[in-house]
C-alpha cells in the first residue's frame, strides 16, 4: 500500500497543475464564452520563455548573456518565474485582440480561430527553438529527493504541489474577493450589466485573457522539469484542461479543482499499474461521466451544453 504513496503524490501534483491550467481556461470561457484552444500553446510558451531566462538562451549580445549566467541559478529561476508569465500574458493580450472579433458569435468561431492560433504558435516555437527537447534547470533547493519510510520522494513534486495550491488559492481570491470575479461568476455575457457597474468590458476581457495566459504559463514553468520542454507539450496540456472543464462542469471552480485532482490521481495510479495506458484512463473517465451526466460532476447549465 505504502508503495503507492509516491504515485499518489505524483498524481496529486499533476492534478493540481492540470486544475491550474483548467482554471485559466475556464476564466476565459466564463467571461468571453470562448474556448481558447491556444491555451496549451500559451502553457508551452511559458515553459520556453522560462527556459530562455534560466538557461540563458537569450537573443542578446554575448557579453550580456555571459553577465546573466554569473547570477546564481536560484535568482535566474525566480526571475523566470516572474517574467516568463508576464511575457506570455502579453502574447495572450495579442491573441485576445484577434479573438475580440468573434465575441457574441457562435463559440465555434473562437474555437476554430484559437485552433489556428495554436498551430501558428506551435510552429513559431519550432522555428525559434527547434524540435528538440529541453530540460529546465532548477535550483538545488527544490531538486533531489528525500527518503521517508524507506521510499524516495522527489522534492520537486512537493514544491510543485505547494506552488500549484498557492496559485489556485490566488485564483480563488481573485474570483471570490474582487468585483471582477463577481462578474466572471455571474457569466458576464450580459455586457449591459457590466457597463452599468461602471466596468470597462473591453479592458476587463483583455485583462482576464492575460490573466488566463499567465496562469497557463506558470503551470508550464512548474510542469517543465517533469514533462520536459518540447513543441507539442501544449497539446498535452490543453486536452486534459478541457477534459477537466467538461468533467468538472463548466463554470464551477471547485468542479475544476476536484476534476483536476481526480484526473491527476487517475493518471498517477494507472501509471503505477499500467503505465502504457495511463493517458487513456482520463478519456475513458470523461466518456463514462459525460455519458451519464451531461453537465459533468458539478456543472451548471451553460451555453456549451446542448
Amino acid at each position: 500500500m505504502i508503495d503507492l504513496l509516491p504515485h499518489l503524490l505524483n498524481g496529486l501534483t499533476l492534478g493540481l497543475l492540470f486544475a491550474l491550467i483548467a482554471l485559466g481556461f475556464m476564466l476565459i470561457v466564463g467571461l468571453m464564452e470562448q474556448i481558447n484552444l491556444a491555451h496549451g500553446s500559451l502553457f508551452a510558451l511559458g515553459a520556453y520563455f522560462s527556459f530562455m531566462l534560466v538557461a540563458a538562451h537569450l537573443p542578446l549580445p554575448a557579453e550580456w548573456v555571459k553577465a546573466w549566467t554569473t547570477i546564481p541559478l536560484g535568482w535566474r529561476y525566480v526571475t523566470a518565474l516572474v517574467f516568463a508569465p508576464l511575457l506570455t500574458a502579453l502574447v495572450g493580450m495579442l491573441l485576445e485582440f484577434c479573438v475580440r472579433r468573434t465575441y457574441g458569435k457562435d463559440p465555434l468561431y473562437g474555437l476554430l480561430l484559437t485552433f489556428g492560433a495554436a498551430m501558428v504558435i506551435e510552429e513559431l516555437i519550432r522555428l525559434v527553438w527547434g524540435t528538440r527537447d529541453y530540460v529546465l534547470p532548477v535550483p538545488q533547493a527544490i531538486s533531489g529527493g528525500i527518503i521517508l519510510w524507506d521510499l524516495i520522494w522527489s522534492t520537486y513534486r512537493f514544491y510543485a504541489a505547494a506552488f500549484a495550491v498557492s496559485a489556485i488559492a490566488l485564483v480563488w481570491l481573485f474570483i471570490e474577493r474582487t468585483p471582477y470575479g463577481a462578474i466572471i461568476k455571474a457569466g458576464a455575457h450580459d455586457s449591459e450589466i457590466v457597463r452599468a457597474l461602471g466596468i470597462n468590458l473591453t479592458r476587463l476581457r483583455m485583462f482576464v485573457f492575460a490573466f488566463g495566459a499567465l496562469l497557463a504559463a506558470v503551470a508550464g514553468i512548474i510542469l517543465a522539469p517533469i514533462w520536459g520542454i518540447r513543441p507539442h507539450m501544449g497539446v498535452d496540456a490543453v486536452v486534459p484542461a478541457f477534459l477537466i472543464i467538461v468533467l468538472g462542469g463548466v463554470g464551477s471552480f471547485w468542479g475544476a479543482v476536484s476534476a483536476g485532482i481526480l484526473i491527476g490521481m487517475l493518471v498517477g495510479l494507472t501509471g503505477a499499474y499500467a503505465s502504457e495506458w495511463s493517458l487513456l484512463s482520463m478519456y475513458v473517465l470523461l466518456i463514462v461521466v459525460v455519458t451519464f451526466r451531461a453537465r459533468g460532476l458539478f456543472g451548471k447549465k451553460s451555453l456549451l451544453e446542448a
Binding site: L111, L286, I287, A294
Partner: peptide
Amino acid sequence: AFISHRRGIYYAFMTIAFGQVFWVVAIK
C-alpha cells in the same frame, strides 16, 4: 451511439476525446 444526442461544443469535445482514445490505442 454515444454522441448523437449532443451538438455544439460538447459534440466537439466528445469527438476529440474519442479521437484521442483511438490515437492512444494506436500508439500503445
